[in-house]
Amino acid sequence: MATTVGGRTPPQQSSPGRAGGAGVPRVPAWRRKLRPYLLSVPAVALIIGILYAFFYGVYYTVLNYAATNPNPSFVGFENYASVLGDALFWRSAGVTLLYAVAATGIETVLGVAIALLLNRSTLIGKTFERLLILPLMIAPVIAGVIWKLMFNPQFGVLNHVFGLGSTFDWLSKDRALWSTILVDVWIYTPFVAILVLAGIRSLPKEPFEASDVDGASWFYMFRRLMLPMMWPYILVAVIFRFMDCLKVFDAVFVLTAGGPGVTTTTLQIGAFEDSITNLNYSRGSTYMFLLWIIVFITARYLVSVLGKAQRRAAGAGA
């Protein structure tokens, strides 16, 4: 063919590409190393902006800053002593812990069960699978509003459907915490379920077929094969759920506002009351900072557990 392709740069063209000689543009090493940092600068600036507020909040904890005291002074660890010496704080820590453990536990068991059931790909499962996530996508506060309407003793649909009469109060002193946990389960079980379902569907098929040929029982396969391989997915779900429960606010706040009494006052609701309702910024910040420390330590611990599980599952799956 007549056309010449490729080859050296045709001479008539004005020397594209490498210019040759000393005129080659160079990028010094420091500028090359700087590239990822430059790309991160806006994000870092934003983070600093947020951390600024955070540290400001930490600073409040050693002041006696309140709406009634706009010119605060340094009080050392007085707020900490006050909060840690307050039975209400420990009460709300207990409520939060119970809420987190119960909600996370129930959601995990139900979520795994739902994932296993949906994985059977029956007609019912296929029809409804798309709708699984709906409660999860509604604002928790709106979920709280919906359930508050349903919980209503006189006009709520639940008492009517279950024939409980108009005296049964879902949000009474004894039941309020468990009712709020029920709402949490309603919202977040799908979160566990879709994560675990995605995990199950990504498992390799061969080990199951192999042990099936060996005649292993369903339970044996679930316990020895499936569970170890699914464990990292379950753990991711558990970590997200547990951490979120520690700072739970929205749905509980709209359902009970922490009451009756202090039966559903979680740590973040307690802090809200101190800093926003009572306008005692320093005490509220101290509340929050203590919660933040709890969250931080828990996060570190759970993430290290996750790392171990992932390594083990990688071994089990291989």
Binding site: I50, F54, Y60, A271, I276, Y281, S285, W292, F296, A299
Partner: peptide, 27 residues
Amino acid sequence: GSEDLMFQMLSFRFAPELMVIVPLFVI
């Protein structure tokens, strides 16, 4: 620092909102 940056991002996801809201309210 890239891992620190990512962890810091994640920590925002899990931090209790009020920790920053109270100072932000003032700011």
